[in-house]
Amino acid sequence: MAVSVNEAVSTGPGRDHTPSTRRRGGRGRSVLEVALLTVLAVVMLFPVLWMIETSIKENRDVYAIPAKFFDFKVTLDHFKDVFAASGGGRSALSVSFLNSVVVAGVSTALATVLGVPAAWAYSRFSVKAKKDQLFFILSTRFMPPVVVVIPIFLMYRQLGLIDNKLGLILIYTAFNVPFTIWMMKGFVDEVPAEYEDAAMLDGYTRLQAFWKFTLPLLLPGIAATAVFALIFSWNEFVFAIFLTSSDSVRTAPPAIAGLIGGTTVDWGLVAAASVVFALPVLVFAYLVRKHLVAGVTLGAVRR
C-alpha cells in the first residue's frame, strides 16, 4: 500500500485524464468537485481559524453579538497572560507548559531507549511466540485509560507517586513503548539483515554490528517515532487530570481545561493558551508527515 502524503502528491496525473471522463461533461463535474472540496476545507478549518482569531481579539470583541469576523481590534494581551501572572512573575499556565515539556520529553526518551532495542530484537531474532507477544504489546495500548487509571491510582497512592512528575513519566512511557516497538519494527524490517551478517563476518559481535551499522540507518525512523511519542504524551489528558493536582506538577492539558472552572470564562485566554499548546504539535506533525499513516495507526498500517 502506498502510504505517505508525499507519495499521494507525487503520483502525477490522476484519473481525470482517461478519455471517458473527458468525453462527457468532465469539465463541469471537475468544477463542482473543486467547489465541494473548498466548502469542506473551509468547514474543517473554520474552528482552527476562529480559535486563532479569538486569541488575538480584545475581550470586548470576543463576546460581541453578533460575532465579529473581520473588524476587530488586534491585541496580544491574551498571549501575555498565558506566560506572565497578573501580579508579575510566571503564570501557573507557563509552569504547566514547562512541566509538559519535561514529562513528554523524558517519557519519550525512555520509551525510545526501551522500545528501539526491543523492536530490533523482534525483527531480527526468532523469539518464542513472537506474534502473540507483539499482539499483547499492542493490546496494552488499547486499554481504556479511565479503567487503567483506577488501579494505577491505588498503586501510586501506595508508592507516593500521586501528584508527582515521575508517576506521569512512568505511565506515559508505558503507553509509548508499545507504539515505539510497533513503529520501529517496521523501520528495522526495512534495513537488510545482511548488513549485520557482513559486519559479523568482519569480526564484529552482533551487538557491535547493531550499534555501528544498523542504528545509524535507523536514526530517521527513530526521530519520526520519537516525534509521534512526543505528540501523544504532550496531548494526553486522562492520566494527567487524575494523577496530578498541584500547579507545580500539573501538565498543560489539565491546566488549560482548568481555565473553564469558574463562573465566567476568559475565552480569549483559553484560545491563546490553546494556540500556544497546539502550535508545536502542528509543526512536529508537519515534520513527520511522511510517516503519518503509520504514526496514527500506532505503527500497524504501512506499505
Binding site: 496531548n235 489528558f237 492539558p253 488549560i256 499548546f277 497546539a278 502542528l282 506533525a285
Partner: peptide, 8 residues
C-alpha cells in the same frame, strides 16, 4: 484537526 489535543 486530527493532530489537536482533545482538550483543545
Amino acid at each position: 484537526p486530527m493532530m489537536l489535543s482533545p482538550v483543545v
